[in-house]
């Protein structure tokens, strides 16, 4: 039986040398865009040690060869899952919401006439924290909110999580970053300690099921001005990532923007979008002249 070793085995130190670590980090960065600094060596090494014993590799060198050449990419996927924490809560990575109201939307509406539609797509929306955070941010912080016909689309591949998103029930932990004032305004506390998002907001978001690699399901997302796609592409292999980026290209209006997660970069994926620095955040823009 090959039981994974307990994560923090004392022998984890001996699994890889500093040179091995550098070599691994470069490879992992090239494949995923996830970058580890030197101070993360212990964290990375523990996880690699556990994968080495799980697949019964003889050494780091053997294991690296396996990850590097495996045609299915399955082991790389295991590593990505082990090295990342995929959690969602209200106002996660909120510096991007600052960029949205202070940089992205002003750029988007500068090409529109008052009353025009502004379309924002949250993908994957998971249990809804992201699209609701976007809605609250716009209502609270975008002075021009009333001048535009704002539409927030939210999609996920998982139909169960979409029902949760539509129901809009959240734990104390999930709303930890929501101020008391905003909780009072947009949430209803429930006897069981949960918070339910108010009906107006629930009804304002268009939730739907869509698999990003299925063109018949994504074909209806068109003329989108801003896409939030955070911490999804890191879980895909090179080809699917490229396909997804190309699908986003079709979905975006010329000059539209993509926001990725903080450890992600379009530089690993596609040259179709140009990086822009807006309010301190790097976002990616479909060139205005693209068509």
């Amino acid at each position: 039986m090959a039981l994974p070793k307990p994560a923090a085995g004392p022998d984890a130190k001996s699994v890889m040398t500093d040179v091995d670590y550098e070599k691994f980090c470069e490879f992992f960065y090239r494949k995923t865009g996830i970058q580890f600094k030197e101070n993360k060596k212990y964290y990375v090494e523990r996880r690699i040690a556990s994968r080495i014993s799980a697949v019964r590799a003889e050494s780091f060198r053997d294991y690296f060869t396996m990850v590097r050449f495996q045609s299915s990419g399955e082991e790389l996927q295991h590593l990505v899952n082990d090295m990342t924490v995929n959690e969602t809560y209200f106002f996660r990575e909120d510096y991007q919401f600052d960029a949205l109201v202070d940089g992205i939307l002003p750029a988007v509406v500068s090409r529109k006439r008052p009353g025009d539609r502004v379309r924002i797509w949250s993908v994957p929306c998971s249990s809804g924290e992201e699209p609701y955070s976007i809605a609250i941010t716009l209502l609270e912080r975008w002075a021009e909110c009333d001048c535009w016909d704002i539409e927030i689309l939210a999609s996920d591949i998982d139909s169960r999580i979409l029902s949760e998103a539509r129901a809009g029930l959240y734990s104390e932990r999930s709303v930890a970053r929501v101020s008391t004032a905003l909780r009072g305004k947009y949430f209803r506390p429930r006897p069981d300690g949960q918070f339910q998002i108010c009906d107006d907001l629930r009804e304002s978001i268009d939730f739907s099921m869509a698999n990003v690699v299925d063109r018949t399901q994504t074909g209806r997302f068109r003329d989108v001005d801003v896409i939030f796609c955070r911490n999804l592409l890191i879980y895909f292999d090179d080809i699917v990532r490229r396909q997804t980026a190309e699908m986003f290209f079709d979905a975006l209006a010329p000059g539209g923007f993509i926001c990725l997660g903080h450890s992600e970069s379009m530089s690993r994926i596609s040259p179709l979008f140009l990086p822009r620095k807006l309010r301190g955040s790097i976002v990616y823009q479909k060139p205005l002249s693209a068509e």
């Binding site: 970069s265 379009m266 140009l274 990086p275 620095k277 790097i282």
Partner: peptide, 14 residues
């Protein structure tokens, strides 16, 4: 360092 043109552009902006 940057490893391709898009990343170079990103770093130059940053």
């Amino acid at each position: 360092e940057a490893t391709n043109g898009v990343e170079g552009y990103e770093k130059a902006l940053a």
